[in-house]
Computed example of a mutant assay.
Amino acid sequence: MHLTEDLLSSVDQPLAVRRCRQTGRDYLLCDYNRDGDSYRSPWSNEFDPPLQDAPASGDDDQSNAAGLPSEKVRRMEVKANEAFDLYRELYYEGGVSSVYFWNLDDGFAGVVLLKKVATPGSGSEGTWDSIHVFEAIDRARLTQYNLTSTVILSLATDSSTLGEMDLSGNMTRQIEIELPAESEAQQIANIGKLVEDMELKMRNLLQEVYFGKAKDVVGNLRSLGSLSESARDQEAQRDIMASMRR
């Protein structure tokens, strides 16, 4: 999928935030809402800075050429932004979300962006950026969804008690699935469910990889108990395992 290659080449940097001049609402910037040095707001459907020779409203041919979705796809984009704005508030309790759709010859594609920055204490900061790029391809009775999701996680702290720590990285996962989609509302529901399930899965994986591995490394560097206590515990575990095999 060519969208996957585009995504993997542009996910090494956290998402930037801009304020929509028409609505006063924040939105996220990415290559998928960009035209030159201008970025399209999902709330107003306007580029900032404005594009020269902007297409007339309702002109699908000119809109597609200028990076704007057709009227039908824009209608779904508006509904998706409303849905993911609620999703963001429920799951992230803050942050910024943006959804962008565009036309394909045999369906449509889009990207769902979510960003949350947390500063729980002095000298501590965490940033979560998730980027979900999908294609929705029309089939005879079903829609094929190709989803590529990337999460960029950054954790940093600098305090007198814990010292300085910076833990950053990203994770990418993909899924392909066919689902019934007989209406625009069902399309939005399918995309929302796929993104929700993928985010939950990736969050659990990140928790295991980041924090579980960090705990193992620290444990190998410095144990809580003495070496003699650790040796006794390991010997007891071996005795138990040996007795279970008899």
Rank of each mutant, 00 (worst) to 15 (best):
residue 1 M to H: 14
residue 2 H to I: 05
residue 3 L to I: 11
residue 5 E to S: 11
residue 5 E to P: 00
residue 7 L to S: 02
residue 7 L to M: 05
residue 8 L to W: 03
residue 14 P to K: 01
residue 16 A to E: 14
residue 17 V to D: 09
residue 19 R to Q: 14
residue 20 C to P: 02
residue 23 T to I: 09
residue 24 G to C: 06
residue 26 D to W: 08
residue 28 L to A: 08
residue 30 C to E: 00
residue 32 Y to E: 05
residue 36 G to I: 11
residue 36 G to V: 09
residue 41 S to P: 10
residue 43 W to D: 04
residue 46 E to H: 09
residue 48 D to C: 05
residue 49 P to M: 13
residue 51 L to W: 01
residue 51 L to G: 04
residue 52 Q to T: 13
residue 52 Q to W: 04
residue 53 D to S: 14
residue 59 D to E: 11
residue 61 D to T: 15
residue 64 N to A: 12
residue 64 N to Q: 14
residue 66 A to G: 08
residue 66 A to D: 07
residue 69 P to Q: 01
residue 71 E to T: 14
residue 71 E to N: 06
residue 71 E to I: 15
residue 72 K to V: 14
residue 72 K to Q: 09
residue 78 V to L: 09
residue 78 V to A: 07
residue 79 K to S: 07
residue 79 K to T: 12
residue 82 E to G: 10
residue 84 F to G: 03
residue 84 F to I: 12
residue 86 L to S: 03
residue 87 Y to P: 01
residue 88 R to D: 00
residue 89 E to L: 13
residue 91 Y to H: 15
residue 91 Y to E: 15
residue 94 G to F: 09
residue 96 V to G: 02
residue 98 S to R: 05
residue 99 V to N: 11
residue 99 V to C: 15
residue 100 Y to N: 08
residue 103 N to G: 02
residue 104 L to R: 12
residue 104 L to A: 03
residue 107 G to Y: 02
residue 107 G to F: 09
residue 107 G to W: 02
residue 107 G to D: 05
residue 109 A to L: 07
residue 110 G to M: 10
residue 114 L to R: 01
residue 116 K to Q: 12
residue 118 A to Y: 02
residue 118 A to W: 03
residue 119 T to V: 09
residue 120 P to I: 01
residue 122 S to A: 05
residue 124 S to K: 05
residue 125 E to A: 14
residue 125 E to K: 15
residue 132 H to V: 07
residue 137 I to S: 04
residue 138 D to Y: 05
residue 139 R to H: 05
residue 139 R to G: 06
residue 139 R to C: 06
residue 140 A to K: 05
residue 141 R to P: 00
residue 143 T to Q: 10
residue 143 T to G: 02
residue 148 T to Q: 00
residue 149 S to A: 14
residue 149 S to M: 10
residue 151 V to G: 06
residue 153 L to S: 14
residue 153 L to K: 05
residue 154 S to R: 13
residue 155 L to A: 10
residue 156 A to T: 01
residue 156 A to K: 10
residue 156 A to C: 07
residue 156 A to Q: 10
residue 156 A to P: 01
residue 159 S to D: 11
residue 161 T to P: 01
residue 162 L to H: 12
residue 166 D to S: 13
residue 169 G to V: 06
residue 170 N to C: 00
residue 170 N to V: 00
residue 173 R to P: 02
residue 174 Q to Y: 07
residue 174 Q to F: 12
residue 178 E to V: 13
residue 182 E to I: 12
residue 186 Q to Y: 01
residue 187 Q to D: 13
residue 190 N to Q: 07
residue 200 L to T: 08
residue 203 R to W: 07
residue 203 R to G: 11
residue 204 N to I: 00
residue 204 N to C: 04
residue 209 V to L: 06
residue 210 Y to M: 07
residue 212 G to N: 03
residue 213 K to A: 09
residue 213 K to C: 10
residue 213 K to S: 15
residue 214 A to H: 00
residue 219 G to T: 09
residue 219 G to C: 02
residue 220 N to A: 11
residue 220 N to F: 13
residue 222 R to W: 08
residue 222 R to L: 14
residue 224 L to V: 15
residue 224 L to H: 12
residue 224 L to Q: 13
residue 227 L to S: 08
residue 229 E to P: 03
residue 230 S to K: 07
residue 232 R to K: 12
residue 234 Q to E: 08
residue 235 E to K: 04
residue 235 E to N: 03
residue 237 Q to S: 11
residue 239 D to E: 13
residue 241 M to C: 00
residue 244 M to D: 05
residue 245 R to G: 08
